[in-house]
Design a protein around this nucleic acid. Structure first.
Length: 475
RNA sequence: GUGGCCAUAGUGAAAUGGUUAUCACGUCAGUUUGUGGUACUGACAGUACGGGUUCGAUCCCCGUUGGCCACCCCA
């Protein structure tokens, strides 16, 4: 308070020289205007430190959410191990053309959302907007095609897309992924979809698996012609956006949410009818395997994915939770039989999936799905004064060596606040050590639940506590 | 990227064109010396940032930043 009051008069003189500025006005604007563009916002006349906020679309993952993330991560590791997937970590920065070639130059992700810029060497680089292209790059660069196929890889990490943020949509977000390279069999499709299903089942999230096949490019070419022709015949009715989509990316009309377009959409030709025999057989097999595994799915003829590399099977997991807003897609995936070739390798079929983690965390939180928390400390070590603090530090160290989870606040002085702390943390036992105990070579063991205390030998304290905790049978 | 709503202590809320901006939770400390949970007392901490209108702005206006919602799209 006193400081503040002193600051007020100190501040007031400051504006005065500013008010005199008009004298300089003629000269000042020229050098100052361009400066403001370059100089960061910290330079303020007041001298007060500006609070630096998060960049738009970025989020801190706070301590209270860490156990949700850990639960998701641990279960991912488990699934990967169970199904024989090896971890692959690729860099966050890649050559920008990896994504324009891999994901597709025309896609929204590359065209309007990618963080792409030149580095100090003038190299065009990008923050990865997704990981499949990087996985393929690594597969090629490290000659993984020379190893027994298929290659099964998984990843976990941050991705970046420059979009307008919303709940469940950030500019930095996290994905987990499973990718299988070098195998064309529909079993692979089914297996990865099964893993996805198992992943969501673990947390009891209400989901629906949407599945479709978009065939190979030839199939799609034929289908698109039919689709465009069909929509053209209804040109008078459809919305403006669909008209635009017909020219740029016809299959997107199937995503349209406009009411006027719904009846048109419902009667539109379906891509499954335009698949080659090979693509159709493949798709049928996938569905048969899913049936065998009792994995529920929903055939969605309007499911077309936004990335160029997909072929044949595509699928998405959406939440069926009513109040999830418009961000219902929890995960997307599919087959990408042509991507390896596109990025310079031999023709190599592949399949992958990428669950989004933020949306999962928010679901788990909202639904209060129980996840393992921090292990509770078993004992709290309290001390009084510097001499006993030293002994307490030794005791704490011994307890740790004995495998007992101990907690402490050695920087606190009053016993009261230390017990308060132990109580707040729900720690069942406390050791109290003061002058008297130091001299006697003892320590007080307190049952925080009942308040019962006993004085025990300092050196035997860890063993006695172990017995109390039931970690060791009484002799 | 387009359009809309919003911004008050760490959190959740309240209030006003004019003295010290209110409350709860929270955090820290104290309520006789070395003992937690309850109670009481005190302290901490705020009008996002910059500009304008005004004698005077937290309130009105503009800009910036950030959040949310819908669209686009997607995880």
């Amino acid at each position: 308070m006193a400081l503040k009051k002193k600051l007020v008069p100190a501040k007031k003189p400051a504006p005065k020289p500013q008010q005199k500025m008009p004298v300089r006005k003629v000269m000042a604007p020229v050098p100052q205007a361009p400066k403001k563009e370059v100089v960061d916002k910290d330079t303020k006349a007041s001298g007060a430190k500006r609070q630096i906020q998060l960049l738009r679309g970025m989020k801190d993952i706070l301590p209270r959410d860490q156990y949700y993330w850990k639960a998701l991560y641990d279960h991912a590791v488990k699934l990967a191990e169970d199904f024989g997937f090896d971890r692959l970590e690729t860099p966050i920065l890649e050559d920008a053309s990896l994504f324009s070639r891999g994901v597709g130059k025309q896609t929204d992700i590359v065209e309007k959302e990618m963080y792409a810029f030149e580095d100090r060497d003038g190299e065009k680089i990008a923050l990865r907007p997704e990981n499949t292209a990087s996985v393929v790059r690594a597969y090629l660069q490290h000659g993984m095609w020379n190893q027994p196929q298929p290659i099964k890889l998984w990843y976990w990490g941050p991705f970046f897309r420059h979009e307008r943020p919303q709940d469940g949509r950030q500019r930095q977000f996290h994905q987990l992924g499973f990718e299988v390279l070098g195998d064309a069999s529909p079993v692979i499709d089914a297996m990865v979809i099964q893993m996805t299903y198992l992943y969501y089942s673990e947390f009891n999230l209400p989901i629906s698996i949407q599945i479709n096949s978009i065939g190979m490019p030839e199939d799609r070419t034929r289908y698109k012609m039919e689709l465009v022709q069909y929509y053209r015949s209804h040109r008078g009715v459809i919305c403006e956006m669909c008209k635009a989509r017909l020219i740029k990316n016809p299959m997107r009309v199937l995503d349209c949410k406009e009411d006027v377009c719904q009846p048109i959409k419902a009667n539109a030709p379906q891509i499954v009818d335009y698949l080659s025999n090979e693509s159709r057989d493949h798709f049928m097999k996938v569905l048969e395997y899913l049936d065998e595994l009792n994995i529920p799915y929903f055939l969605n003829h309007t499911l077309v994915r936004g990335l160029d590399y997909y072929t044949k099977t595509v699928f998405e997991v959406v939440t069926t939770d009513e109040d999830q807003g418009s961000q219902t897609a929890l995960c997307g995936g599919g087959r990408y039989d042509l991507l390896v070739e596109e990025l310079g390798g031999k023709p190599t079929p592949a399949f992958g999936v990428a669950p989004g983690l933020e949306r999962m965390v928010s679901q788990i939180r909202k639904r209060q799905v129980p996840v393992p928390g921090a292990p509770l400390p078993q004992v709290y070590v309290a001390q009084l004064g510097d001499l006993s603090r030293r002994k307490a530090m030794t005791l704490f160290t011994r307890l740790r060596e004995e495998g007992i989870r101990a907690d402490q606040d050695f920087s606190k002085n009053s016993l009261k606040s230390q017990l308060e702390s132990a109580n707040a943390k729900k720690i069942p036992y406390a050791f109290v050590i003061g002058q008297k105990e130091v001299q006697e070579g003892t320590v007080i063991m307190r049952d925080m639940d009942s308040g019962a205390q006993e004085t025990v030998d300092f050196n035997k304290a860890p063993q006695i506590l172990k017995r109390k905790l039931g970690l060791e049978k009484a002799e």
